[in-house]
Structures are given as C-alpha cells and as structure tokens.
Amino acid sequence: MAGAHMDVTDVAHLARIRLTPAEEQTLGRQLDQILDYMEQLKGLDVSGVEPTAHPFPLVNVMRPDEARPSLSQDEALRNAPAPANGLFMVPKIVE
C-alpha cells in the first residue's frame, strides 16, 4: 500500500515482515503521520555539521587474537526450531 511517504508493502517486504491487509492500512496511516511530523527536521540547517554515530568518541577498540572455547553443538542448537544432524534446518534455499 502506497502512502504519501512510503509504500508500506514494499518496505515491509524489505524488512521481511508479512502484514495483513488490515495491518497495511493502519500502519500505513500511522507511519504517514509520523513521517509528516519528521518533516520538521528538513527545516533545520545542518550544513557543515558532522554526523554523530556514537555518543562517546572512542577509537581503536580491539581484542587480542586469542581463541577461546566455543559452545557445544548441543548448546548451540538448544533453541533451534528445527535442528537436524548438527545443522539449523530451513526450507530449501533456492538461488
């Protein structure tokens, strides 16, 4: 469903969320309203302003290259909805 700002069907698909037609209606309307509100940012002059990705500036955070124990296969798969032969099973992947 295409609203004034976005095509909800399209974006929901990009986000891998399947919406019911009713959800598309409601969400579409609400998101349009929210995006209308966000228009106010466009009135602000941000030329020459650096973007902030992290609120506290740090650089060069690294760890030494040391191997540590992993989970056992059992633990790794304990929460899996469909484990088999040590693998996480999914419907057949077609490229």
Partner: peptide
Amino acid sequence: YYLRAQKVRTLIR
C-alpha cells in the same frame, strides 16, 4: 532521514 538525524544529534549533544 538517517544522515540528517545524525547531524541533528550532533547539534543536540
């Protein structure tokens, strides 16, 4: 949207 918001974030900070 995103990049602009990050810049406004700088102003707010």
